[in-house]
Amino acid sequence: MAIIEINKLSKTFKVKIKDKGLKGSLKAIIKPQYKMVKAVKNISFKVEKGEIIAFIGPNGAGKSTTIKMLTGILYPDKGNIKVLGIDTKLERKKLAYQIGTVFGQKEQLWTHLTPYDNFKFFGAIYDIPESRVEKKIEEFRVLFELDEFINTPVRNLSLGQRIRCEIVASLIHEPKILFLDEPTIGLDPVVKENIRTLIKRMNKEYKTTIFLTSHDVGDIEKLCKRVIIINDGQVVLDDSMENLKYHYLNKKIVEAKMKEKINLDDEEGITILKDKGYNLKIEVDTTKKSVADALKLLNPDKIVDINIANIPLEDIISNIYKKEGTKK
């Protein structure tokens, strides 16, 4: 059963515009002018229970606007949203009890209080009985390894510790869906990895559906099985991560270290990316030439070392962004 259903959703913003200089400023006071910006254009998709879904796109693509509509913060202009069967426009407060939100750039914890006091606070505002809150805190203390800092004021925590607490705070009321908007922004690679592990664990233990937006390809690659790409307010791709990685571009990168120099000419299905005599880097389009054929061209007897890799996900995604950008 779909836990999130979006049908032909659109949102337009009215944005104030101003001409250049002082004259423009005066004009804006007397006769303010506005332009309409279509942030989200007619998008539709469904999310199943227990999925970890990446909702990505370049800046200004409409990701945050969509997430804000999904969480009841903004009303859509057109279309329908059902989250857990709840109409986000009509039953905002009811929805609040069922979902959790973490906005990486928006702190929701009280900085002068300890994580423990914060968790108690969130438990109270979601009307959770105190004994249940205590039980949940105890559970999360172990799961999220909070022992070291659960009684330290939030203002004294590192960013990674704070994000961990932000996630726990949004889980205290046991939401069925967790919306994570750039949860690993500004974190170092080790802490990022740690947060990803915790998100995965949470999804496994509590079957919480995760709706994630991130610019970090590592988050998407390591956490999500499905990816929705949005650009210029439209869904440009909705596919499994597997398909995206292995079939969307059908390209492999072959890096080889040769015993002797080799002269390789461009031919169909092969693009030479780097040729430094003994070191060679080529891109193989597997729809036109198999990797085996490409290796034959290199002459396997002369290969000292070889590395065959998929195109980095980052390149695939930025390629999709660019492609959609040039279509406009």
Partner: peptide
Amino acid sequence: AYNVNKPY
């Protein structure tokens, strides 16, 4: 806006 979807 972040207060809008809180249960209070």
